[in-house]
């Protein structure tokens, strides 16, 4: 197949854009510096399409589509921002803030939190919905890391990195609906996990203060998920 046959041209926010046929709307947009907010997406991990923040309008589609999993098509007309989409995104973000206990001022991730940053970027100045204040545990049994379920947004990045990159499958999700929790093994204390390799990848990819390194808890520690794509490329290179 020739290179041209693999190229699709489309418009994103009325800008002409070309992309490879196997790229998603999100990838095409980011390559052209068009910003679409995301939370569960992380380069280097599989997509789950769960946070719904990257929903965009595609002309002709009956529903809004998640940019992270929707492939580009020839002639596609994509709108990433409109009053309606922006309003939905803000409300979705409010739902995140209201469902658990995101107290930014006393959070270890304050200043380095993707959820907090999204609120700033999307202009969410307050939450219209009542906060739920669920009683959720903090597990500090691991010698180096802590999981604070109060800050968890259930993006499952930790679950994916642990299964897809580290291959340990220590992290999983239990329960369903609002009762869902990320767990290690059979919901055992993290420190007693028989599968955890203590590699810390889950901590680096966590977008909020749900997973953090104990030693840097008070230091507004920045996370470093940038290693992922490189790791992936290197591994794929080894396999070839």
């Amino acid at each position: 197949m020739s290179a041209e046959a693999n190229i699709r041209t489309l418009t994103i926010d009325e800008v002409d854009v070309s992309a490879r046929a196997d790229q998603t709307i999100l990838e095409a947009a980011r390559e052209h510096n068009i910003e679409i907010p995301t939370l569960c997406h992380l380069e280097g991990l599989s997509e789950v399409g769960a946070c719904r923040l990257c929903l965009v309008q595609v002309k002709g589609a009956r529903r809004l589509l998640p940019a992270c999993v929707t492939r580009v098509e020839e002639g596609m007309e994509v709108t990433t921002h409109s009053p309606r989409i922006d309003r939905y995104r803000t409300m979705v973000l409010e739902l995140f803030f209201a469902e658990r206990n995101h107290v930014c001022s006393v959070c270890v991730a304050n200043g380095n939190c993707e959820l907090q940053t999204l609120a700033l970027r999307l202009g969410m100045t307050h939450v219209e919905m009542p906060y739920q204040y669920p009683q959720l545990p903090v597990d500090a049994s691991h010698p180096r890391f802590t999981v604070d379920h109060n800050r968890c947004v259930l993006c499952t990045r930790c679950v994916r990195v642990c299964g897809e990159i580290e291959g340990a499958n220590t992290w999983g999700v239990m329960g369903r609906g609002a009762q869902s929790l990320v767990i290690t093994d059979l919901k055992e204390p993290w420190g007693e996990s028989e599968t955890c390799t203590s590699c810390g990848k889950c901590v680096q990819v966590c977008p909020t203060g749900a997973l953090f390194e104990k030693s840097r808890a008070g230091m507004r520690a920045q996370k470093h998920p940038e290693f992922l794509p490189y790791l992936r490329i290197m591994r794929e290179g080894e396999q070839q």
Binding site: V159, G163, N169, T170, W171, G172, V173, M174, G175, R176, I183, T184, D185, L186, K187, E194, T195
Partner: peptide, 25 residues
């Protein structure tokens, strides 16, 4: 119970976290 989930998970080579996730789902 926990031992039975562990037994099934290990027999089928399903990660413990996934087995527990299924049971509680």
């Amino acid at each position: 119970d926990e031992p039975s989930i562990k037994f099934v998970a290990k027999s089928l080579r399903v990660p413990l976290s996934q087995a527990y996730g299924v049971v509680t789902f």
